[in-house]
Simulated assay, not measured.
Amino acid sequence: MADLSAFPITARWPAAHPDILQLYAAPTPNGVKVSIMLEETGLAYEPHFVNIGDNESHNDAFLSLNPNGKIPAILDPNGPDGQPLGLFESGAILIYLADKTGQFLPKDAAGRYETIQWVMFQMGGIGPMFGQLGFFHKFAGKEIADKRPLERYLTETKRLLDVLEQRLTGRQFMMGDAVTIADFAIVGWVRSLVGFYDAADLVGYDKLTALSAWFDRMMARPAVQRGVEISARP
């Protein structure tokens, strides 16, 4: 049995099955990227709910694994060279799991880097912009008289959605006929934008026919359906 006692996070979230990968997450768009990937790969893992509403991602135990205090994070007892590996940043975790399992990332170099570029597109653009739009549309931003922040993030969100629409026109998935980590990176954010943030009408989602068809295909996948619920509050 693997000994994970050197990792302080396991004192706060004990591992019932320390020989398998440990996932520390919540059902946010970033959190579900990893649980979707794990469900799709079939890799054994143990999920731990991190209550970000109670600021648990900023307690000492979580910060010992991710000093940036953001979910998700993983602890793999069977990391490179058979040594335990702690890892944070959802994009990095997706790439790591793809390399570990040999799944959902093209083997050829050109396809690999093209896929990674779309993961970075999500990390650097979709995530921050959709999140800010959601804040100013649904949450405290409503109380701000100056509407320029909402307009700024709405304009940029629409632009990013147009990029996705163009990319997915004539394609089943972001890289063509095969689903990849690029799809797993993006699907949770689109789900939150049109669902949790209630911004479908605001961004003109119904007009994005290629994107909406892709989203429906993704959400019809049983592993995606499981993945978006895995890290939900117990």
Results as ranks from 00 to 15, higher is better:
49 F>H: 14
123 M>L: 14
199 A>E: 00
185 A>I: 03
216 D>N: 14
59 N>M: 09
65 L>Q: 09
85 L>H: 01
136 F>Y: 15
53 G>E: 10
166 Q>P: 00
53 G>M: 13
120 M>G: 01
31 G>A: 12
26 A>Y: 04
185 A>R: 06
18 P>C: 06
114 E>M: 13
154 L>D: 03
167 R>M: 04
25 A>V: 05
180 T>W: 06
83 Q>G: 00
166 Q>S: 12
74 I>N: 03
97 L>N: 01
108 D>H: 02
87 L>W: 02
158 K>W: 00
21 L>S: 07
132 Q>H: 10
24 Y>P: 03
186 I>L: 15
81 D>H: 08
135 F>N: 08
70 K>T: 10
14 P>W: 10
118 W>L: 07
178 A>V: 12
13 W>H: 11
184 F>A: 12
231 S>F: 02
212 S>P: 00
41 T>S: 15
103 Q>M: 14
43 L>F: 02
165 E>K: 02
140 A>R: 11
83 Q>D: 10
154 L>Q: 06
146 D>H: 11
207 K>R: 15
165 E>A: 00
178 A>I: 08
81 D>T: 01
74 I>Y: 00
66 N>Y: 02
181 I>W: 09
227 G>F: 12
190 V>Y: 01
210 A>F: 12
193 L>F: 01
146 D>E: 07
210 A>V: 09
3 D>K: 08
83 Q>I: 03
141 G>I: 08
43 L>K: 10
204 G>F: 05
164 L>M: 15
86 G>P: 06
4 L>Q: 09
181 I>Q: 08
170 G>V: 07
170 G>R: 06
94 L>V: 04
80 P>M: 06
105 L>M: 13
107 K>E: 14
57 S>C: 12
167 R>V: 02
27 P>Q: 11
113 Y>P: 02
234 P>K: 13
198 D>Y: 03
77 P>L: 09
227 G>K: 08
64 S>I: 05
209 T>Q: 11
75 L>I: 04
166 Q>E: 14
185 A>Y: 04
113 Y>F: 14
98 A>Y: 02
172 Q>A: 15
89 E>Q: 13
198 D>N: 12
12 R>T: 12
59 N>T: 07
181 I>M: 10
57 S>W: 00
168 L>C: 09
110 A>V: 12
49 F>I: 03
14 P>K: 11
49 F>K: 04
116 I>L: 13
48 H>P: 05
184 F>M: 15
